[in-house]
Write a protein that binds this DNA or RNA. Structure first.
Length: 716
DNA sequence: GGGTTAACCTTTTTT
DNA sequence: AGGTTAACCC
């Protein structure tokens, strides 16, 4: 079979990676260097040229979206479905294995996944059982503590008891939390990974089986793997050593979540004969964009060293807009988007990027004012909405009666006369007898401690769940969901309210039925549709669910922008304290990560990049005067073309040289007249001396770049 | 049980 | 500032 087509479209380095012999390979892939391409082509190569069965391939990605995309691209390339190949995030792979081997892993059969919200609730409950004060032991910090340890593979037993009472107490909370999870059949995000890792590590027959099955392991975004993930991958590949990892140390932005950039170095040590391929040719951005991105990232001390280059044009200069305040910044961005759209481009080609989600608000305001469609990524996602979580809690309780958080959530939702007092009694009983709320309720109903009225309402709830569980058995998933929404009274509860909010909730619930109907569940996983759907809801936040597809401007945090590209990018809020973020300035080593974040942001841009900061910003209630981000001063001034904000131009920026403002002939924002183009406004000035070029927006002919020395501009 | 108000808290990133 | 939660009142 002719397989040359797989390599034909690749450059030398890419070809080297894709066509590499068996063994371990490390691909250091710069931003926009065709990393996804290399991965997909590699799989195609394995299947077509090396006759590797898709069954023996495990491909690991960072997000679910990336997994879908990869699978889609491979199938498109080969022209047939990749049946039996495992492609997914490590979380979903872990989940899949735990479902298959729940017994060996020591889990309940119907175990449910605990999302971040549920986890907080459970931590609160743990604190209550231990008689500890929430104020003194903030649940968020406990959550952080637990995750931190699990990501490093540490169980409570691995943590030294120590003498510090605070530390000892934390450890005790961790321990109790684990016991509760175990009792209720709950598994949090980091537990998925740790449990699956321990399963493979301690169970030799299973390990051998998986090592035998997955002859080829491929890993995307390798720089963002944490300790447990790395060890796990290493175990997979320990026998055959066929492991193909792709990563970029300059794009490691998740160390706060346990990701270890050092894994890249460790990899070469653990797999001694690793070949290293560097992808440095960039196919995404213009030369000017790459220059500033390179300039910034060059300030990081600890990096493996890569320099992106392109065969393409230098392109437009990268522009810096100095805004008076955040509103001014937003208006500027809006103005540029409008002219972009007027030039016939799509709105979806534009991305507004920011460091923290709170910044999206102002942009949303101005976009809304002019009815420009936009979409904000991040924030509350479909499966996280309250009403959806209510509905899911019913389904979860049907799937697993031990699931206490779900029980708590819906026992009185919609209200059915089970108040806090009753619940307190149920909780007490559960705590004393070490059983779930469900079992406690059943016991109390048959006991004599509760009043007749309470027994009847609690009994009705128990009956409702039992009845639902029974009725739903033979139905399709969508029917199950619909039944639950109807009989639980959830739909009616929201429907009776005529408010806009409640209306939206009803729509969301209906959308959940649609989601269930469209959910294609993989029968290979050997899981019933309902538990499969519930896991799906927990693992995939439901990005894209319920949003109609429109040509929208894209708003997102820098973190969510990773892996994406846009013709026009606005990198906003480059102020000290905001970006780099205040918190990162306090901790050692975090500044470099912020810089990588900046690099990630810049390299999202294909054709044009605007950077901006505000001199005054109202954030979290108060106005702050921040100095421009240090990242700006790391860009050589001749690489940036500075545009000044309209309102307070007399305030000179403290970075770079603003040649322009004391340039005797023109002033930014000033009006000028040209012999043939007529009147216009100076938008930016670049270079110095006789090479000075100015950009003028003329009323008659639009934007023009002119060499100042020859243009003969007349100041008005 | 539901609605209103007051205090409070959180403000980095998310599988 | 904004949103959420806890407390309080009807």
């Amino acid at each position: 079979m002719d397989v040359s087509y797989i390599l034909d479209s690749l450059n030398q380095a890419q070809r080297e990676a894709v066509g590499a012999a068996q063994g371990s390979l490390l691909v250091l892939a710069g931003a926009g260097s065709g990393k996804t391409r290399v991965l997909t082509h590699r799989v195609a190569w394995l299947v077509q040229a090396c006759q590797v069965s898709p069954l023996s391939i495990l491909a690991v990605t960072f997000t679910n979206k990336a997994a879908q995309e990869m699978k889609g691209r491979i199938e498109q390339m080969l022209g047939y479905p990749m049946r039996g190949m495992w492609v997914g995030t490590l979380h979903s792979v872990a989940h899949r294995m735990l479902r298959a081997h729940w017994q060996e892993a020591g889990l309940q059969q119907g175990f449910q996944i605990l999302d971040s919200d549920d986890q907080i609730r459970l931590i609160k409950r743990t604190l209550k059982e231990l008689n500890l004060d929430e104020g003194y032991w903030p649940p968020r910090q406990i959550q952080w503590y637990i995750h931190g340890h699990k990501e490093e593979g540490r169980r409570p037993g691995h943590i030294a008891e120590g003498i510090d009472p605070q530390q000892r107490e934390l450890r005790r909370i961790y321990q109790s939390y684990e016991q509760l999870c175990q009792r209720f059949g709950l598994v949090d995000f980091s537990e998925l990974l740790l449990r699956a890792y321990e399963l493979i590590k301690n169970n030799e027959p299973l390990r051998a089986r998986y090592q035998e099955r997955f002859q080829h392991v491929l890993v995307d975004e390798f720089q963002d793997t944490n300790a447990v993930q790395y060890e796990w991958l290493r175990l997979f590949a320990a026998k055959h050593g066929n492991i193909f990892v792709v990563g970029d140390d300059d794009q490691s932005i998740y160390s706060w979540r346990g990701a270890r950039i050092e894994n890249i170095l460790q990899f070469e040590r653990d797999f001694p004969n690793t070949n290293v391929v560097r992808l440095e040719q960039n196919y995404r951005s213009t030369g000017n964009i790459l220059s500033i991105a390179n300039a910034v990232i060059d300030h990081n001390q600890s990096r493996m060293g890569k320099k992106l280059w392109t065969r393409g044009d230098q392109g437009d200069p990268v522009r810096l807009y100095v805004a008076y305040n955040e509103m001014d910044e937003a208006r500027f961005v809006l103005d540029r988007i409008q002219s972009w759209v007027e030039q016939g481009h799509a709105r979806s080609e534009v991305a507004i990027l920011y460091r923290s989600n709170a910044q999206s608000r102002v942009f949303e305001e101005v976009l809304m004012q002019v009815n420009m469609p936009y979409r904000v990524y991040g924030g509350l996602r479909f499966f996280e909405r309250a009403e959806i979580k209510d509905a899911l809690a019913y389904l979860r309780l049907i799937a697993s009666r031990q699931d206490d958080p779900s029980f708590e959530r819906i026992v009185n939702m919609p209200t059915r006369g089970i108040g806090n007092r009753t619940l307190e009694q149920v909780r007490d009983y559960a705590r004393i007898n070490q059983v779930s709320l469900w079992d406690a309720s059943r016991a109390l109903i048959h006991g004599s401690e509760l009043s007749a009225r309470v027994i009847s309402s609690l009994g009705r709830f128990i009956d409702l769940i039992e009845r639902l569980a029974h009725q739903v058995e033979e139905q399709t998933l969508a029917d199950q969901v619909e039944q639950v929404l109807q009989l639980s009274g959830l739909l009616a509860h929201f429907a009776k309210d005529k408010g806009e909010k409640a209306q939206g909730r009803v729509e969301n619930l209906e959308e959940l039925i649609t989601a269930a109907r469209n959910y294609e569940h993989d029968t290979e996983e050997g899981l019933d549709p309902l538990p499969a759907f519930l896991s799906h809801a927990a693992l995939e936040s439901g990005e894209g669910q319920g949003e109609e597809w429109q040509d929208c401007v894209q708003l997102m945090s820098l973190h969510s922008a990773k892996g994406l590209e846009f013709p026009l990018v606005f990198l906003t809020g480059l102020e000290e304290g905001l970006f780099p973020h205040q918190r990162s300035l306090q901790e050692q080593g975090r500044l470099e990560e912020e810089r990588r974040l900046c690099y990630v942001g810049m390299t999202r841009a294909m054709q044009a990049l605007y950077i901006s900061y505000a001199e005054v910003r109202r954030l979290y209630g108060r106005e702050s005067y921040a100095s421009p981000s240090r990242f700006l001063s790391e860009i050589p001034s001749e690489m940036l073309s500075i545009v000044r904000g309209g309102i307070r131009t007399e305030l000179a920026p403290s970075i770079g040289d603003v040649e322009s403002s004391d340039n005797h002939q023109v002033k930014l924002g000033g009006r000028v007249r040209h012999n043939s183009f007529g009147d216009g406004v100076v938008l930016s000035v670049e270079g110095r001396g006789e090479h000075t070029r100015v950009q003028v927006n003329f009323e008659s002919v639009g934007n023009k770049w002119l060499v100042l020395a020859y243009a003969n501009l007349e100041k008005l």
